[in-house]
Amino acid sequence: MNEKPKKLINKKGLRLDGRKPDELRPVKLKVGILPNADGSAYIEHGKNKILAGAFGPREMHPKHLQRADRMVLRCRYHMAPFSVPERKSPAPSRRENELSKVIRDALLPSLFVENYPRTGVDLYIEVLQADGGTRCASITAASLALADAGLPMRDLIVACAAGKVDNKIALDLMDTEDKIGAADVPVAYMPNLNAVTLLQMDGKLSPKEFDEAIKMAIEGCKKIYDIQKEALKTKYKIIEQEEVEE
């Protein structure tokens, strides 16, 4: 076992990885990287490395899960056995089951499900490396995968967490901070509608601290939103260039 660091924020006010309390980890996004998926995205959020692939809208199987008046979104969040320090059994854990559900609930408000009756969209999220905040990074990537699949959307969904470390509210906790820190508040958000689509919390916060945390998380979301939009545009820029070259 690694020795646990006692202080998460040093005298200069910097965190273990040198970030300021309200600073995000570096976020890299790529759209359209899986050839067989209808839409896909890859995110590197700090040390998190996550792939998301969307299939559909296509005929829903098994048929009894079809809905006559809407599209059904199925979502599977899964962690690779080698994604964490101690091997994770590949069988879906209760945590993964819950996250699959909250991620689906977080993405649904952006979709016009009633426009695609009897169809299904399968969304597969594979966490290749995890370092705290995988559910948020998964949502950010998954929303791009859905957009890449050509689904009309109210807005992209972007997610980011804020929490409490060493008695201070801080943005985007990494694994060590999440484990030792006092609280974590993941938030998913549609910036254009000012809509919160995922909100969870664990740890202890006063109502005032919670307010501060959710505000900070939303500011983080807005920053990632710009990267998200840029990633989506980049894919089409590349296609445009290729066409010109031809």
């Binding site: 609930d105 408000p109 549609m190 809509a195 109502p207 307010d211 939303i218």
Partner: peptide, 27 residues
């Protein structure tokens, strides 16, 4: 909520959303 009125866990569910104003109202 804990004995001393702090928030200790939270979960949003369902396929809709809350605006930030609604979140603080719900709170």
């Amino acid at each position: 909520f804990t004995d001393d009125g702090r928030i200790c866990a939270m979960q949003k569910g369902g396929s809709g959303y809350f605006t930030t104003k609604q979140v603080s109202e719900a709170m």
